[in-house]
Simulated scan of single mutants.
Amino acid sequence: MTSHVQFPWSWVASSRWWDGLEADDQALIEEAIDVARQYGSEQERELDEFYLEALQDEGMTVIEPDVTPFREAALPAIDRVMADMADGVREDALGDQSE
């Protein structure tokens, strides 16, 4: 229950290709990406809930740790790794830290 492994629903495109698109096309692609991410994230949540319930039904004891100290301790390493990434990648990769 640490959420240390998640599928971020990322996408990748070369800047040369992206910069060659018209602004309207970029906007359409960004909108499609947002829709796909929301759908993918919802599917992942539903599967997580399904499997968690199935495991508990089979007798598994689930421990929900306080993940805040772990996240705080990991942030310097994440910042080092993400320092050379494009704008927005860090925020995109980390997502909503309140979950």
Rank of each mutant, 00 (worst) to 15 (best):
G20P: 07
Y51S: 05
D96I: 02
E46D: 01
E22K: 14
G20M: 09
R45Q: 06
S98D: 06
A77Y: 14
P65M: 08
A77W: 10
E49R: 07
E58N: 09
V62A: 15
R37E: 03
A73W: 11
D96A: 04
W11P: 00
M85C: 15
V62T: 12
D34A: 12
V67R: 14
E44D: 13
D34V: 04
R80H: 10
T68Y: 05
R71I: 05
Q26D: 08
P69V: 05
R45S: 02
F70W: 15
R80W: 01
E22V: 01
I33S: 01
R45G: 00
D25I: 02
L28N: 08
G88N: 07
A54V: 06
L47Q: 10
P65E: 09
E31Q: 12
E31R: 10
M82H: 05
G95L: 02
V81G: 02
E72G: 01
F50D: 08
D24R: 12
V35C: 00
G88S: 06
D34M: 04
T2Q: 13
E44W: 02
T61A: 15
Y39I: 01
R90D: 08
R90E: 10
L21D: 08
G88E: 11
W9C: 07
E44N: 07
V35E: 05
W11R: 07
D24L: 09
T2Y: 13
I78V: 15
Q26F: 03
A27Q: 13
E64A: 07
G20Q: 11
V35S: 01
M60K: 12
Q97C: 00
V89D: 12
L47M: 13
D84V: 00
G40V: 02
D66M: 03
Y39S: 04
E22M: 09
I78N: 04
T68Q: 12
D87Y: 08
A77H: 14
A36V: 01
P65T: 06
S10Y: 12
E30H: 02
D84R: 03
D19Q: 14
A32P: 00
L94P: 11
A86T: 11
I29R: 05
P69M: 09
I29C: 05
Y39V: 03
V89Q: 08
S41K: 02
D84F: 01
A77F: 13
D66G: 02
A13H: 06
R37L: 05
L52Y: 04
D84K: 01
